[in-house]
Every structure is written in C-alpha cells, then in structure tokens.
Design a protein around this nucleic acid. Structure first.
Length: 276
DNA sequence: AGCCAGGCAAGTG
DNA sequence: CACTTGCATGGC
C-alpha cells in the first residue's frame, strides 16, 4: 500500500488488493515475505501474475541498472539495495495515502493508512489472515471531515474527503491519466484536491507505471543542492526535468527510490562526499 | 520549547 | 509566473 519503511526481515507483508477498485471483481488478500531461498507468498486466489505485477518482479533490473548514470551516490545506493523494485500500488489507495503524507513522517503516514482501513475499510482474508482493506473512494466520500480529523489527519482531512468524492462521482479517477505523456499526466493529477506536483509524481511512479517520475521531496531537493549543483534552482517543472536527466531519463524514478532510501537510512557523514 | 516531517492551497505582486 | 503565508499533528 503506502511505501512505508521496510518490514523486519522474515516478517510477512500483508495487504488486500482490489477492494478499492470497482474494476476488480474479487479482491485478493495476500501476504508476501522474503526468505533466504526466495520470495514466498500466500493468497486467497490464484494470484501469481498479480503478485509479480504488484512488486515489479518482471521489471528488467539489469537494463535499469545499466541506464543509471555512474554517479557515486547512485552507485552506492544500488550496491546497498540489490533487488529493490518499484511497486505498482492500487491507484486510489496510493493517491489518498500520499495526500495524507504531506508534511508527515513516513512511519506516521503508514500508521494512518492502517487506521483509515480499520475505521472505514472492509474485512477480507481467510482463516489465518484477517485484514482490513483500504476503503473504497465511495466509502470515504461518505465519511465526514470531522470523522477524518479524529484520526489525526489535520488539515488534510478535507483534501482526502474532496478527492474521494471526485473519484466516487467519476469526476476524475487517478488511473484515467494513464496513456497521457508524463508531464501532462502530472498536471492532470493536480486537479485532485490536496495533490500538488510532488504527490502527483508519487502516484505516477508508485501506482501508474511512470518510471520516469521523480517525486521532488525535501530529500531530492537536498540531493540537488549537494550533489547536482548544475541543475539550476527554479520551478518544479525545471528541477524535475533536470533531475530526470541526471537520474537516467526513462528509469529516473527507479534511481530516485534507491537514492531516497540511501539518504533516509545513512548518516550524512557516511554518504559519498557532495559539493557542500 | 522549538523544529521538522516524502507539501499544498490560496492570496498577492 | 514567482513568491509568501497559514495550516494540524506528533515525535524528538
């Protein structure tokens, strides 16, 4: 669901997929975990194709690595996280989750998603596994702003409510932008309330398969300042174009996610030397 | 106590 | 278009 911190080694990652998407007939409850001899999953349906797609298992990693520029920061990040892949989250849950993420820590955002599911979601699962699915846009659109604020959403509560309403009323669906050229798709997504260009990039990258999208968050802005000073400070569009070029064009989002996790998990003094 | 967190909307010049 | 301000909440 939301790209949270990595789970403990050996722990199951559990989720329900499709419960928030009217185009999916039967929601699939599944859990996945990494074992020494490979990846293991259990699911409520025959779900191998779905699992492979959800976690990018068929993405051509060698080609992707080859397309990454040989910058020390990038090389270090790739060596640190061999096999890291970009997920393909369900679009609605991804959009609403990243609306919640504004000015909020990753761990807290993740907890908030669990609470939203607990409060408004529907239970799915089988004997050993009982989960609450992330709610549909229809269900969230019925929730009052006050109910959402009770979860600690703060000023984001009306954003979630309004965007859920837009989806529920067919005004706009995040998956609708698929097929548009990247920048056009990004602009289109900002029609949702609470979605600016950064959140739009997250949805494009983590749900809609736009692997060139580079979410320009506070971490990536630091990267530009410290490591890519040739990219002139300017509008989001200008910075985006610059960092996409520096991160490998069509697969720049793959580079971004490796670097993002390296920065978040490494003390500054242990990082490759930058300009500052 | 203050600062910051995977920003955004609305208002102004 | 570029720039500023207010905004909820919680953890360190």
């Amino acid at each position: 669901m939301f790209s949270g911190d990595p789970p403990a080694a050996d722990a199951w990652y559990e989720t329900v997929v499709g419960a928030d998407d009217p185009r999916v007939d039967v929601p699939v409850t599944l859990r996945v975990r990494q074992q020494p001899d490979g990846l293991v999953y259990e699911a409520s349906e025959d779900a191998e194709d779905l699992v492979r797609s959800l976690i990018g298992l068929d993405d051509p990693l060698e080609e992707i690595y080859a397309a990454m520029p040989a910058h020390p920061l990038i090389t270090t990040a790739v060596e640190r996280y061999p096999g890291l892949r970009i997920v393909a989250d369900p679009p609605v849950a991804c959009l609403l989750s990243f609306i919640c993420s504004a000015q909020m820590r990753v761990a807290r955002t993740y907890q908030l998603q669990l609470e939203i599911a607990e409060s408004f979601g529907q239970p799915w699962g089988w004997d050993e596994v009982q989960l609450m699915a992330f709610p549909t846009a229809e269900r969230l659109a019925e929730a009052s702003e006050a109910e959402l604020r009770e979860l600690g959403l703060g000023y984001r509560a009306p954003y979630v409510a309004d965007s859920a309403r837009m989806i529920a009323t067919d005004e706009l669906h995040p998956a609708d932008v698929c097929g548009l050229p990247y920048e056009q798709a990004r602009t289109e997504l900002t029609r949702f309330i609470g979605v600016g260009e950064k959140v739009a990039d997250c949805v494009l990258l983590f749900a809609l398969g736009y692997h060139e999208a580079v979410p320009l968050d506070t971490w990536m802005r630091k990267v530009i300042t410290s490591y890519l000073p040739d990219i002139e400070d300017g509008s989001y569009t200008d910075l985006s174009e610059g960092i996409r070029q520096s991160f490998g064009g069509d697969i720049a989002g793959y580079t971004q996610t490796h670097v993002f996790h390296l920065l978040r998990q490494t003390p500054t003094q242990d990082l490759p030397p930058g300009v500052t």
